[in-house]
Amino acid sequence: MCERQRIYERRFIDDQDPPWTDSDVLQEYHFCNVYRRLDYTTQHLLDEVLTRENDRDVFFNTVIYRFFNRPKTFQSIGGFTPVDRFDPDGMCHALRLYEEDHPLFSSAYRVTTHSWADSDSKAVNIVKGIIRDDLLANFDYYCESVLEAESMEDAFEVLCELNGVGEFLAYEMVIDLNYELLPFSENDFVNIGPGSSSGLMIIFNEVHEDWLHWMVDRQEDLFAEFDLTFPYWEKRLTLRSFEHALCEYQKFVGIKEQDEVRRKFSPRDHAQDTLEDFA
Results as ranks from 00 to 15, higher is better:
V174Y: 01
P71E: 02
R110W: 09
L136F: 11
I126L: 08
H93E: 03
H208M: 12
D14H: 15
V165G: 04
R240V: 03
T41E: 09
Y29E: 11
F139M: 12
F68K: 10
I130S: 08
L239W: 01
F12D: 10
G129W: 01
H244T: 10
N69P: 01
I77P: 03
M1Y: 09
V165D: 02
L275G: 09
V146A: 02
A117F: 08
L212K: 01
A94C: 07
H208R: 15
D210F: 07
V158W: 01
T113G: 14
F242N: 06
P71T: 04
T229I: 00
D227V: 12
P18C: 07
D22Y: 06
D47Y: 04
F184Y: 09
E172I: 07
F168A: 14
S197L: 02
D133H: 12
S119H: 06
I13W: 06
D89Q: 09
M173V: 15
S266W: 03
W233K: 08
G164M: 10
H208F: 12
F223Q: 00
G254L: 11
L135E: 05
D22H: 11
Y179P: 00
T21I: 13
I202H: 10
S107V: 13
P18S: 09
D120T: 03
K235F: 02
F74P: 00
F86S: 09
F189R: 05
F156P: 00
R4L: 13
R37G: 03
D24C: 05
E157L: 13
D15L: 13
E276W: 12
E248H: 03
L181F: 00
V83F: 06
